[in-house]
Amino acid sequence: MSLELNIPCETGIVTALLDNAENPTAFLILAHGSGAGKDHEFMSGYARAVAREGISVLRFNFPYMDAGKKFPDRAPLAISTWKRVREWAGSNVSGGLAVFVGGKSFGGRMASLAVAEGMDSRSLIFLGYPLHAPKKENKLRDEHLYPLQVPMLFLEGTRDPFANPEILNRVVSELNEDSEVVWFEGADHSFKVARSGRTISEDGAGLAETTADFIRRQLNAD
């Protein structure tokens, strides 16, 4: 069962959920996408499945989500929230384990911007990186990624309108050598595959094994 937590931030309090693994080997902090918060079925399915793989997961809301606002926080606030959650988790709940960070779409991109500004993380994990807006492939959100030295895992659907496969493959090939992209055939930006018969929760859970394998490889490389 997920443990409800309140994390003090500059805007007041952000809410979080902790899924503790049994005898955890690592700790993952996870942020949601722009349209749905930490309680969304996709986020729940993913977090709980990763915890079953032996990795504890803390998922949190950005301030706008807790406030019931429609539009995401601007980048400076989202980045500062990420930094505060990372700091708080390291002092209160990670138990000294290696900390990995990432998120769904917007949440993952904000995590990478926070890491670019010095936030500590063992690696970055993207659940559908929004490389560009749909049909705007000439405006990429990639410049801050190239200098990063942490390993990066991009989990992507082949039908994702936010990530042209050819372009994303090129971008990842130009990142540090420990970064990789894993494609999920037929999946859209929410990792939904037409006529798959899976629930939203199962769509999220389907990414857990790949995530856990990546984290274990990073730990073994230490």
Rank of each mutant, 00 (worst) to 15 (best):
192 K>R: 13
85 V>Q: 03
2 S>E: 12
84 R>V: 15
1 M>P: 13
62 F>W: 05
2 S>Y: 00
125 I>A: 00
21 A>M: 02
166 E>V: 15
193 V>D: 11
66 D>M: 00
14 V>G: 01
135 K>P: 00
118 G>T: 03
199 T>R: 06
202 E>K: 08
90 G>S: 07
60 F>E: 05
4 E>L: 14
93 V>D: 11
183 W>C: 12
170 R>C: 08
205 A>Q: 01
120 D>P: 00
89 A>L: 00
157 G>R: 04
42 F>M: 04
61 N>S: 10
55 I>Q: 09
45 G>L: 11
23 N>M: 10
61 N>W: 04
31 A>C: 09
98 A>F: 08
116 A>I: 04
46 Y>T: 05
55 I>D: 09
210 T>E: 14
94 S>E: 10
32 H>M: 01
188 D>A: 10
160 D>L: 05
82 W>Q: 02
47 A>Y: 04
87 E>V: 04
186 G>S: 09
102 G>A: 08
105 S>E: 01
3 L>S: 11
139 K>D: 09
4 E>F: 12
158 T>I: 07
38 K>T: 00
44 S>Q: 15
110 M>F: 03
222 D>S: 14
90 G>M: 06
30 L>Y: 14
195 R>D: 15
133 A>L: 14
202 E>V: 06
162 F>L: 13
176 N>K: 02
168 L>M: 10
151 P>Y: 02
95 G>V: 08
18 L>N: 01
160 D>I: 01
206 G>I: 04
4 E>M: 13
215 I>Y: 11
68 G>S: 03
75 A>D: 14
54 G>P: 09
167 I>C: 02
195 R>A: 14
214 F>G: 06
180 E>C: 07
128 G>D: 03
214 F>M: 06
160 D>H: 07
161 P>Y: 03
139 K>N: 10
92 N>R: 07
88 W>Y: 07
97 L>Y: 04
175 L>V: 00
181 V>C: 04
136 K>Y: 07
57 V>S: 01
85 V>F: 07
143 E>Y: 13
208 A>S: 11
190 S>P: 04
148 L>C: 01
117 E>R: 08
117 E>L: 11
17 L>Y: 12
165 P>Y: 02
94 S>F: 10
20 N>R: 15
131 L>S: 01
47 A>K: 02
196 S>V: 09
49 A>E: 11
111 A>C: 06
95 G>N: 06
97 L>I: 09
48 R>I: 12
101 V>M: 14
141 R>C: 03
125 I>S: 01
195 R>G: 00
186 G>L: 05
114 A>Y: 01
115 V>F: 01
25 T>I: 15
90 G>N: 10
1 M>F: 09
175 L>M: 08
104 K>R: 08
33 G>S: 12
191 F>E: 01
198 R>E: 11
99 V>L: 02
164 N>L: 10
